[in-house]
Nucleic acid binder design. Structure first.
Lengths: 234, 234
DNA sequence: TCGAATTATAACCGGACTGTAACGAGTCCC
DNA sequence: GGGACTCGTTACAGTCCGGTTATAATTCGA
């Protein structure tokens, strides 16, 4: 099993240097030029270690990691930075990094530190099932009412209140086809005066967030002529 | 649950400095003057983290760690050293250390690195003796119900009674999303006739006191459309 | 295969929700 | 009785969300 790294640095020369170095060592390496690019890939998972540059135009490495950690992505992470200031280190560690290396550095040291991170056991997200949880699992989608959170493959998905309610409704009876009116009654309180099709854009936005391929939804299925349902054949 | 450190350094002044520093942060610290002394204690276990000086008369820190790892002691470890040479770092990491800090360093950075080590190995399934949870730790925030005290990074935080109760409630089920009504019911006794949004300013004042950056809270998080929750992913 | 019906998607704007500062009333304790 | 502290309320600013509209894409029946 090869180990997979995600390297994010806006400086091309540095990125290529590191990627080449680790590839020669037998790692599988994916490179990204910006935090924005990296975010989606990182969310989809499968990495054993992140190496992030701190200073980048647009989103910084620190912001990137913070957003990932908020979404319960606990992949071991190492920051690279030209900044040696204590306050920067504080910010880095508080964002949840595991290590912090100041440029210039020797590639060998980076390698040693990455190896050190990889030999630590990965942190699992254990859902601690006390009591009768208000938790619904459909495939790798988990809806936790108590925490008011939805996770996909362990990664937190940020939904708006309405999106959450719609999903919660659908999930309360997986497989049941809900008409738009059903949903309007349940989610928008009874007696809602408005266009039935209001539901559609919300379903759409929901799919953008929880479906890997929104064009071919796995979870939220269309029931033509009726409305929507949550797929229970997973 | 206080975290227990083993600090090994032959230099008395450094040892005392570090031990004092970590004790003030609420750690339990055991000090040893030599690797030989430390070996038996380390074997007997019970430590959450080792901090070893590398250069010591007699057995070096590296040798010490190697012997411990051979005996399947995998406690997270950090080396301190005056040596900045790559070959020393190689030796350290090959012995199985998790981190490596070169003197001179700022105590704060050592603290950050130790915290990073402590949060990585899968958090133990907390004893969680159902009720009577007298002490709750979230990141570097400690809520001690028995003493009716809250400390942040070891420093006492002065909260008003109401602020304390709100925090205590939130902390009684970390990660649970509480609606404003939940909090009003729990904190202000049942049947409270008043504006739900009364909660907000209290949350705000609470954040001013326990958050380093109240604009981007680490502990008290907003659950849009619902209320608030205590972050348990720290 | 074509056209009508249905659904998907993008963009926009008004409004709802939250954050925060300021103020005043109430309370407790010297 | 006075001063400090705490809490509830109000007001306002900023952000995010949801409903609407318009248009594209898809499905299905004729």
């Amino acid at each position: 099993m090869t180990r997979k790294l995600l390297i994010v640095d806006d400086e091309t020369s540095m990125r290529l240097l590191l990627a080449g170095y680790f590839r020669r060592l037998g790692f599988e390496v994916e490179e990204k030029e910006s935090a924005e690019d990296a975010f989606q890939s990182a969310l989809s998972g499968g990495y054993d270690c992140f190496i992030f540059d701190v200073q980048m135009p647009g989103m910084s490495g620190i912001e990137l990691l913070r957003k990932l950690r908020e979404r319960h992505i606990h992949t071991p992470t190492l920051f690279l930075t030209a900044q040696d200031k204590l306050e920067d280190k504080v910010a880095g560690f508080e964002a949840g990094t595991d290590d912090y290396l100041t440029k210039p550095f020797e590639p060998r040291e980076l390698e040693l530190r990455v190896e050190a991170l990889l030999r630590r056991p990965a942190r699992e997200v254990e859902p601690q099932d006390t009591e009768a949880q208000q938790r619904i699992e459909i495939g790798s989608l988990v809806i936790d009412k108590r925490r008011h959170e939805v996770t996909l493959d362990g990664a937190l998905v940020e939904l708006t209140p309405l999106e959450f309610q719609i999903l919660e409704r659908l999930a309360s009876e997986p497989g049941r086809a809900w008409s738009r009116n059903d949903l309007l009654d349940e989610v928008w309180s009874t007696e809602y005066e408005g266009y039935q099709r209001n539901v559609d854009p919300h379903i759409n936005r929901l799919r953008q967030k929880i479906e890997n391929d929104p064009k071919n939804p796995r979870y939220v299925l269309t029931v033509r002529g009726v409305g929507y349902k949550l797929n229970d054949a997973l």
